[in-house]
């Protein structure tokens, strides 16, 4: 999927200049749909859930576009909306899971079933399985740092957490994962 070569600054300037909202939105969607998709997908695993969350994210972006004045970076703003949507989804899923008696439905193994679109090798499957065992926020931080290779400052802006707390959380997650691998491989 080709992303548009337009910069965030240019998009923000277009917004400020009062360029047609539909046109700016199209630029935003085309530029960020894939990045946000993977950001969400790594958290929820299922493609269908990711699609729902991504659509809700862009609906919020559409609604908030009139009020976006460029105080925060466009990239940060979009990631923040996507992150909040994802965390809300996971929270509501946890609630549903707590009410559901069907354990099979909620099992981690089940989330990585091939019909959920996961077709990685054994090692990747194990890593995803262990990552899914982390608490939601810790998992989010791990994904952003490890997979998306974001800087702590960027993650701090998106999640609204201090860089110190993020560093601690990330290292805690890494240690947990290492311990899980260690136990698995012994």
């Amino acid at each position: 999927m080709a992303e548009t070569g337009i910069s965030d600054k240019e998009i923000t300037e277009k917004l400020k200049a009062g360029t047609n909202k539909d046109a700016v939105f199209e630029l935003l969607v085309k530029k960020y749909q894939e990045r946000l998709y993977w950001h969400i997908r790594k958290m929820v695993i299922s493609h269908d859930d990711t699609d729902d969350i991504l659509q809700n994210t862009f609906i919020k972006v559409w609604k908030g576009l009139d009020n976006f004045r460029g105080d925060a970076a466009l990239y940060t703003w979009l990631y923040r909306i996507a992150t909040n949507e994802t965390l809300s989804f996971l929270k509501s899923r946890e609630k549903r899971k707590a009410l559901s008696m069907d354990e099979e439905e909620s099992s981690i193994e089940n989330k990585l079933k091939s019909d959920d679109g996961f077709n990685g090798n054994e090692l990747q499957r194990k890593l995803q399985k262990f990552i899914l065992m982390l608490p939601d926020k810790q998992r989010l931080i791990f994904n952003m740092k490890y997979f998306d290779e974001m800087k702590y400052d960027e993650i701090a802006e998106i999640t609204g957490t201090s860089t110190g707390a993020l560093k601690a959380s990330y290292h805690h997650a890494v240690n947990k994962l290492k311990a899980m691998f260690k136990n698995e491989l012994i």
Binding site: M1, F25, E26, V29, K30, Q33, E34, Y37, W38, R41, I45, H47, D51, L54, Q55, F58, I59, W62, G117, F118, N119, G120, N121, L123, Q124, R125, L127, Q128, Y146, F147, V174, K178
Partner: peptide
Amino acid sequence: FDELKELKDNSQFSVPEGYFETFHDRM
């Protein structure tokens, strides 16, 4: 972790064909 670093790409997850191409229209 070094081995996993090489597997960071998103190919482990499959996406329906043409999903991103049609996403804007669906939006």
